[in-house]
């Protein structure tokens, strides 16, 4: 900008800053609403006017992890006094935690879905990034016949709508018994993320000067040794960024999970909407589940902030 600013420019700048703050508040409002609903008592989740100031509660999280049923009559004072604090907050909401014959607390469906999400997202990320790193190095350093076509082929598999791929995969998985298994989803997500991982890692590999390895080769390293001892450490940041992107994609994926799993290997994204079901949903529990599910992604987004542009544009734009 010009060194001397006119007063109208300064005014415009101030207006722009206020506008930016307003936009930020509007964009974050839905996320804030999820987070705040996760700590509300149930009767304050759906009120008019909306409840903004309230005493935060942990009960939605207790309810999220346990199976509950409606209380027909309030618990006896002895029963209430004997109950641990986390059971009391459920009593306070007019419900009780379901226990089996031995008095063991029954878990809800959420913890196992969350665990499935973790297992499937982490395993598929390791596989996709592992294979992708090798392949990207191959494309980056060696001449490959029809390289552009191969890279296009690798990319195009990711561009298909998930349902298009899911129909034949469903039939094949059914034939070999991979429906509703962890391995089934892991394979799908690995295939899905592999193309992304190859494209992104190729960009990172291209940025590592060839001279590093060549110097190592002259020093008597084999190509393999040079790759593991020189290239991989140099590519560490790129590998980490790619891994986080792959993890987020697998973590968030919905359509494949909806079609390929129903109970045993179900991940959180198809499970959370299924909680709404019939009748009046308890939005505080859904918000608590959503909050826990979004938290890792929010943290990763902050860690990734300098690589977002590159990752989200498939490596097309580098800063």
């Amino acid at each position: 900008m010009a060194a001397v600013r006119t007063s109208s420019e300064i005014t415009f700048n101030r207006v722009a800053i206020v506008a930016v703050l307003l936009v930020t508040i509007i964009f974050l409002a839905p996320i804030y609403w999820i987070a705040s609903t996760a700590f509300k008592p149930r009767n304050l989740a759906t009120t008019i006017p909306p409840t903004v100031v309230f005493q935060p509660e942990i009960s939605p999280f207790v309810k999220l992890f346990t199976k509950r049923s409606q209380l027909r009559s309030p618990p006896s004072p002895e029963e209430y006094a004997a109950a641990p604090w986390w059971e009391r907050v459920v009593f306070d909401g007019g419900e009780k935690i379901v226990r089996d014959g031995k008095g063991q607390v029954q878990w809800s469906g959420y913890p196992s879905r969350f665990l499935n999400s973790l297992i499937i997202a982490i395993t598929s990320t390791v596989l996709a990034v592992g294979m992708g790193t090798f392949t990207a190095y191959g494309f980056s350093r060696f001449k490959v016949k029809g390289e552009a076509d191969l890279l296009f082929f690798i990319l195009s598999t990711r561009m298909l709508p998930p349902v298009v791929v899911a129909i034949p995969m469903f039939l094949m998985y059914r034939a070999v018994g991979l429906n509703d298994t962890h391995i089934g989803l892991i394979i799908l997500y690995t295939a899905f993320n592999l193309s992304f991982s190859v494209w992104l890692m190729k960009g990172f590999m291209d940025e590592i000067p060839k001279e590093y390895e060549e110097a190592a080769l002259v020093d008597g390293y084999t190509r393999m040794e040079a790759f593991f001892k020189i290239v991989l450490p140099e590519a560490a940041t790129g590998i980490a960024a790619t891994a986080v992107f792959c993890f987020i994609t697998a973590w968030n994926e919905y359509a494949f999970a909806l079609i390929m799993t129903n109970r045993r290997a179900q991940t959180a994204p198809p499970f959370i909407p299924s909680q709404v079901g019939s009748g009046l949903p308890d939005w505080t529990v859904i918000a608590a589940g959503t909050f826990l599910f979004l938290l890792p992604v929010a943290i990763f987004t902050f860690l990734l902030r300098n690589h977002l542009l590159r990752g989200m544009s498939f490596g097309a734009i580098r800063k």
Partner: peptide, 19 residues
């Protein structure tokens, strides 16, 4: 501010959509 504004696109469409 930029990072905060970028948050929505990183989240799960299905789960946030539900909300």
């Amino acid at each position: 501010i930029t990072t905060l504004l970028l948050l929505p696109m990183m989240l799960s469409m299905a789960v946030v959509g539900l909300f």
